[in-house]
Design a binder for these strands. Structure first.
Lengths: 113, 113
DNA sequence: GGGAGTGTATGGTTTTCATCGAACACTCCG
DNA sequence: CGGAGTGTTCGATGAAAACCATACACTCCC
């Protein structure tokens, strides 16, 4: 087994820094209605204030977990274990430095298609 | 047969103005390696100078035609019939007005993933 | 008219992706 | 310890998208 230090004995989620993300991956991550909703709700909330299950999206737990994995892989979201929950943070500045203006586009535009 | 007026007797391609395009559609259109290549090559060429078949992408004619239809539908490309060929133009300004900075992101970043 | 060049439409295959249900880990609390 | 709450993993399913080969339409030029 792996050694354990600290209080959480759970495997920390793997994060990808926006700098390691290709444009194509970033666009693909944001080209999904559920993930767009997650990003927007996250942007309207305080950092680390939202657990994964607290979002209003019409999908089950499994799919939701998958979507968060995609967002992590695109450098859009950072996660941290807090008790039994996994709380989230939108990587605003880091992502915006890597892809200037992209996040703003998604957040400003609320229409669908 | 049908009556014919003017020089081109071919159905003009249907165009969608960027203003009518949702963010999600725009992102989805650009989240494809072949279409990214088309847009980049188009950006490096003079307007109306490139026919559909003149691009260096590893797909057949049918798939290529489909990709151009997607780009038209996202308001990224304008097409015009010129003799037997269909020549293209990147809608730089119009698209950039609707989605500021998005095109710049795709054009600047050349890496893949 | 007929053939070469160019692009679109159709039909069918393959791949990719979103989704669900169920089973499994981990944390907290009683 | 045992149960409730939370999230991940696995296997399978269904829908969407990319692709190809073929057939078709149109333009140009001889």
């Amino acid at each position: 087994m792996a050694q354990r230090t600290g209080t959480s004995h759970r495997a920390a989620p793997e994060h990808t820094h926006p700098d390691q993300v290709s444009v194509q991956t970033a666009l693909a991550a944001l080209a999904d209605p559920v993930r767009i909703t997650l990003v927007r709700e996250l942007a309207d909330s305080a950092e680390w204030s939202r657990s994964c299950g607290s979002f209003d999206v019409p999908v089950g737990k499994a799919a939701l977990s998958h979507h968060f994995a995609v967002l992590r892989g695109a450098g859009l979201v950072e996660q941290r274990d807090e008790g039994p929950k996994r709380v989230n943070r939108l990587r605003r500045d880091e992502f915006d430095t890597r892809f200037p203006g992209l996040l703003a586009l998604v957040l400003r535009d609320a229409q669908d298609g």
